[in-house]
Simulated scan of single mutants.
Amino acid sequence: MNQKINACQTENTNNQTPVMLVTGSARRIGAAIVKAAHSQGYHVIIHCHRSEQDADNLADQLNDIRANSAKVIVADLAIVNDGAALESFIEHILKSFGQLDVLVHNASRFYPSPLGSIDRTQWDELFLTNAKAPLLLSQALLPYLKRQQGCIVSLLDIHAHDRPFSNYTVYNMAKAAHRMMVQSLALEMAPEVRVNGVAPGVNILPDPTSDQAIDETQQLDIIRSIPMQRIGTPNEIAHSVLYLVQAQYVTGEIITVDGGRSLTMAGGHL
């Protein structure tokens, strides 16, 4: 685990500006959430594992807009398997701005695990980011979120409930566990801390250079299956996250943001 603080940044233990931590937020949906929160006056903590340069660039951009308002923490979420490493991670989070008001679980691994080829590595990796780390981080940060009467928002998936992807059994199971975590923690953490979720549909396509890339024909098929007739955007997810952060009488809820796709989908392939 490595914590980065830009040279212009200093610890502020008396800060009253709300602070949001977003896991996996150097790029894509996570970055959109960070930017949306920052635009509403939040101090933001950008967590990343491998996308350190992207995280640094995002922090620099936000600090140019408002000095000392964004920091970067680099860590493999496997730190939750090591008590001392997890404690150090929590200490670095709190040292960033002296408090934590919002925790957003966005980091996620996503890849197929076809039946017959499922192994322990896939199980451990997919459950780590999509279920285990969100739970253990929520537990570890609960005292600080309680102090601020804060909240947790989890990024889920429309396929985590009744509509599984074919060949993604382990991912489906992990996201389903995360969904149940949201509802369970909403009960256990009330009334001090609210816990909610956002379930995206196709709000961003896989990187064209990744092993999950979708060709043009597949993209057109997906668009035809969405009542709104377009791919969603990361900003639309960010908007829903910020709504849940501000909705003081909402807990245990999961907002679907999929352009209506779940109304016409029976599960199966992308």
Rank of each mutant, 00 (worst) to 15 (best):
Y111L: 02
R163V: 09
A107T: 03
L126T: 01
N196S: 14
P191G: 10
R109A: 14
G268Y: 01
L244M: 04
I214H: 08
N15G: 13
N235L: 12
V170N: 03
L58K: 02
N12L: 09
C151N: 07
L136T: 00
K35C: 06
A177R: 04
N130S: 05
T251D: 07
L58E: 03
H239P: 00
M1T: 14
M181N: 12
P191I: 06
S51P: 08
R50D: 12
A31I: 12
I158T: 10
N15M: 07
A55V: 11
A160L: 07
A177D: 02
I214W: 12
S69T: 04
L220W: 08
H161M: 13
G41K: 03
L263A: 10
E188D: 15
Y144L: 04
G197E: 02
I254L: 05
A140I: 02
L205S: 01
A84G: 01
G259K: 05
A133D: 01
Q248L: 12
A213H: 09
A32H: 09
M1A: 15
V19Q: 09
F97V: 03
L77I: 04
I46C: 09
T10I: 14
Q139Y: 11
P234L: 05
A186Q: 07
D82C: 01
G150L: 01
P234G: 05
G260L: 10
T23C: 14
Q3I: 15
V153K: 02
F110L: 07
I237R: 04
I46K: 09
I254V: 15
P206R: 02
D54I: 06
R194M: 00
A7Q: 13
I93W: 00
Q219P: 06
K4V: 12
F127R: 07
S240T: 12
R230A: 10
L220R: 15
L62Y: 08
N203D: 05
L145P: 06
A59P: 02
R120V: 14
M265V: 05
V245F: 02
Q99M: 09
G260H: 11
T233S: 10
Q149A: 10
D56Q: 11
